[in-house]
Design a protein around this nucleic acid. Structure first.
Lengths: 146, 146
DNA sequence: TATAATTTAATTGCGCGCAATCAAAAAACA
DNA sequence: TGTTTTTTGATTGCGCGCAATTAAATTATA
């Protein structure tokens, strides 16, 4: 196949495209398992942060998740409506909103723990491939791993 | 750090999360360059298919891009409104809609070719890392490469 | 202290992304 | 042939994802 000066515009020569497609496919594969506990993928990773940190501000959540308030505010209101979290202004700094997990949110962890186990069975990657992928992705995110 | 049975729910132990975050960050990095030619990222990859194939059905585009008609129909109408494509029913099979690139759409390629060049400068990956990433992502997509 | 700059969420608006549903056309089949 | 099934896009509705704007609170500074 002879090269031409537009080869850089071919879909097959992009690194961004399989990344974009793969991310979507992965979220799609999570969906049936997450439907069972009535969470979307984004709500699921938001709960992950809360299961680990218990309490943090919207800003901190945004930094962990690479999401801004335009995404988080309505999402957190939904999680609050489901009873998994509380949203309270910080007394020391009224600009900050503190998100805290509730007992109900903690209990959800019991059901959620099944999700990674079920997803693991779907993976087509060898452990070394998954490790390489993990390292490279975090490098792209500007966070060196190891 | 001692393990516990919830470790599988930690954000740092997910492979899906850096994939999801990285895809978003990558699209975000494209945005300023794509703004210059008035395309969104999804419109950009749709045009990539058309620059290469010239003419194909919505279904075929969906297969290439991993997108369904709910996403493509409005997106293609926008590209049609911009004059880059035409949308015509197939005469042999009226169910199919044929998407074709216009001269104007072809011309856009001249400006678009700058985008990959500019993006290349932003990459923090070594060539071997990019190659590994490419191979692993396509493996996840169920398409073996090489 | 008064004012300016910064920080933090919330809001708004737009573009996906996709599941579910629908309708039209074509293909399969009894 | 007529009926059923499948294929293909379009539509609808909801949840992000994010840029841009706003408003409130805090901090920095003259």
């Amino acid at each position: 196949m002879k090269d031409n000066r537009y080869d850089s515009l071919k879909l097959e020569n992009q690194i961004c495209f399989p990344l974009y497609a793969c991310a979507k496919e992965t979220v799609r594969r999570y969906t049936p398992f997450l439907d069972a506990i009535d969470l979307t993928y984004t709500q699921y990773i938001a709960m992950m942060v809360l299961w680990e940190k218990k309490s943090l501000t919207v800003k901190q959540m945004g930094e962990y998740l690479y999401l801004d308030s335009g995404t988080l505010t309505p999402l957190l209101k939904k999680l609050e409506a489901k009873g998994y979290i509380t949203r309270t202004r910080c007394e020391q700094d009224e600009r900050s909103l503190i998100v805290e997990i509730t007992d109900s949110g903690e209990k959800l962890k019991e059901q959620a723990v099944e999700v990674p186990a079920k997803m693991a069975q779907c993976s087509s990657l060898e452990p070394e491939e998954a490790a390489a992928l993990y390292r490279i992705l975090y490098k792209m995110l500007g966070k060196t791993v190891e």
